[in-house]
């Protein structure tokens, strides 16, 4: 099996193809992560701010999240009129998942900002939008980052399913391996997916640590 793997990887053309698949995989999984954050933060704010919208919004997110990816990948074209084999479908579908995943924790995080901190900010003369950017949003970063970690791993794992509709990044290695009854591409694909997920996860952890220095200090009461 290992000799097969060696033989498979010895071909420069194969390696170049794998590299292309990897790059595709990265943008297919991470663009939706970024888009998802951009959509979910305002939605979370709406759910946090308007009690009436909250139930409906979170309910819809729940339902959306139950739809299996392979179904969503091919339903998207019906909804937005794209080609059924277009990469746009994967990006839109994963953006929807990321959004559905993030709205609830963002809402909860905004709810959890202490009322006295908000009151103090208001009383010092922050206008609402500025207060959101300077106080509420930064305080939600730990929760947002935790959600993004789940989202990134989930997206990286899901992109492969897109191979069934022709846009799957490393997932192409699975369909290729299966159709040729040949294990090496599948093993390479699984390994690279896991490594990618791990690397992105570590990067997100590092990013969170850099952005939230206050969460790392010890809460010691000093006289």
């Amino acid at each position: 099996m290992f000799s097969d793997l060696g033989k498979y990887l010895s071909d420069a053309g194969t390696r170049a193809d794998i590299g292309t698949d990897l790059v595709d995989h990265i943008y297919l999984s991470l663009l939706p992560l970024v888009f998802g954050v951009v959509v979910a933060v305002p939605l979370g704010w709406v759910a946090h701010r308007f009690g009436r919208a909250r139930g409906a919004l979170l309910g819809v997110m729940n339902i959306v999240y139950t739809v299996p990816s392979i179904a969503l990948f091919v339903i998207i074209p019906v909804l937005i009129g794209s080609q059924i084999l277009s990469p746009v479908n994967v990006i839109v579908a994963l953006t929807i998942y990321t959004t559905a995943l993030l709205v609830r924790p963002i809402t909860d995080a905004l709810d959890a900002v202490p009322a006295h901190v908000i009151a103090a900010a208001t009383a010092m003369g922050f206008r609402q939008w500025r207060r959101f950017l300077a106080v509420e949003l930064p305080l939600s970063i730990p929760v947002l980052a935790a959600g993004m970690r789940v989202g990134s791993v989930s997206n990286i794992s899901l992109v492969s399913v897109g191979a069934l509709i022709g846009t799957g990044g490393l997932g192409g290695l699975f369909t290729d391996g299966f159709s040729r009854r040949y294990l090496p591409p599948i093993i390479v694909g699984i390994t690279l997916t896991l490594v990618l997920a791990l690397v992105v996860d570590l990067l997100l952890v590092a990013l969170r640590r850099a952005l939230t220095p206050w969460t790392r200090v010890q809460g010691v009461a000093v006289q």
């Binding site: 006295h116 901190v117 103090a120 900010a121 009383a123 010092m124 003369g125 206008r127 305080l139 939230t212």
Partner: peptide, 22 residues
Amino acid sequence: PPTLRRGIGYVIQQAGLFPHRT
């Protein structure tokens, strides 16, 4: 209100300090 408030100091029970700022 924001302009008015910037000119008036305000201290509350739990201090209301921003936990994310030094």
